[in-house]
Amino acid sequence: ALNRGDKVRIKRTESYWYGDVGTVASVEKSGILYPVIVRFDRVNYNGFSGSASGVNTNNFAENELELVQAAA
């Protein structure tokens, strides 16, 4: 299972961040479909780089994520 702070690569092909590595911000335990919230260094097309207006978190299912580096 994934944990907060883990570095993960995104495998959801239609995602803006496909192939990117993000950090797990939190994992919901309530049984929702996309329980893993991942935070990225770059914002998506809703904002400009360096601006706070873009979105830099997204929810994924565990099977859409590949663990790159476990949290220390």
Results as ranks from 00 to 15, higher is better:
Ala1Glu: 11
Ala1Leu: 13
Ala1His: 13
Leu2Thr: 02
Asn3Thr: 14
Asn3Ser: 12
Asn3Met: 12
Arg4Leu: 13
Gly5Pro: 00
Asp6Phe: 02
Asp6Ser: 03
Asp6Ile: 04
Asp6Val: 03
Asp6Asn: 02
Asp6Arg: 03
Val8Tyr: 00
Val8Trp: 02
Arg9Ser: 06
Arg9Pro: 03
Lys11Arg: 10
Arg12Trp: 03
Arg12Thr: 07
Thr13Phe: 13
Glu14Cys: 09
Tyr16Lys: 05
Trp17Asp: 15
Tyr18Ile: 02
Gly19Ser: 03
Gly19Arg: 03
Gly19Asn: 11
Asp20Tyr: 09
Asp20Arg: 05
Asp20Lys: 11
Asp20Ala: 06
Val21Asn: 01
Val21Leu: 06
Val21Gly: 01
Gly22Arg: 04
Gly22Ile: 03
Thr23Tyr: 08
Val24Leu: 01
Ala25Asn: 06
Ala25Asp: 14
Ser26Ile: 08
Ser26Arg: 13
Val27Ile: 09
Val27Leu: 06
Glu28Asn: 10
Lys29Asp: 11
Lys29Val: 10
Lys29Ile: 09
Ser30Ala: 11
Ser30Lys: 13
Ser30His: 10
Gly31Phe: 10
Gly31Leu: 11
Gly31Ile: 08
Ile32Asn: 14
Ile32Ala: 13
Leu33Met: 09
Leu33Pro: 13
Leu33Tyr: 05
Tyr34Thr: 05
Tyr34Phe: 12
Tyr34Ser: 04
Tyr34Ile: 03
Pro35Gln: 11
Pro35Tyr: 09
Val36His: 01
Val36Ala: 00
Ile37Glu: 12
Ile37Val: 12
Ile37Asn: 08
Ile37Asp: 03
Ile37Thr: 14
Val38Met: 00
Val38Leu: 01
Arg39Gly: 04
Arg39Phe: 13
Arg39Asp: 06
Arg39Met: 14
Asp41Gln: 08
Asp41Cys: 12
Asp41Glu: 14
Asp41Asn: 07
Arg42Asn: 12
Arg42Glu: 10
Arg42Ala: 06
Val43Pro: 15
Val43Glu: 09
Asn44Ser: 06
Asn44Asp: 15
Asn44Gln: 15
Tyr45Thr: 15
Asn46His: 10
Asn46Arg: 02
Gly47Glu: 15
Gly47Thr: 08
Phe48Leu: 13
Ser49Cys: 15
Ser49Met: 10
Gly50Met: 06
Gly50Tyr: 07
Gly50His: 06
Ser51Asn: 11
Ser51Thr: 11
Ser51Glu: 13
Ala52Ile: 09
Ala52Asn: 12
Ala52Gln: 14
Ala52Trp: 08
Ser53His: 15
Ser53Glu: 14
Ser53Gly: 11
Gly54Ala: 09
Gly54Pro: 09
Gly54Trp: 05
Gly54Glu: 07
Val55Ala: 07
Val55Thr: 13
Val55Glu: 09
Val55Cys: 14
Val55Arg: 05
Asn58Ala: 15
Asn58Trp: 15
Asn58Ile: 06
Asn59Trp: 11
Asn59Gln: 08
Asn59Arg: 11
Phe60Trp: 02
Phe60Val: 03
Ala61Val: 03
Glu62Ala: 12
Glu62Arg: 14
Glu62Trp: 13
Asn63Lys: 08
Asn63Ser: 14
Asn63His: 14
Glu64Asn: 01
Leu65Tyr: 02
Leu65Asn: 04
Leu65Asp: 05
Glu66Pro: 03
Glu66Trp: 02
Glu66Ile: 09
Leu67Ile: 07
Val68Pro: 01
Val68Ala: 02
Gln69Ala: 11
Ala70Glu: 14
Ala71Glu: 11
Ala72Pro: 14
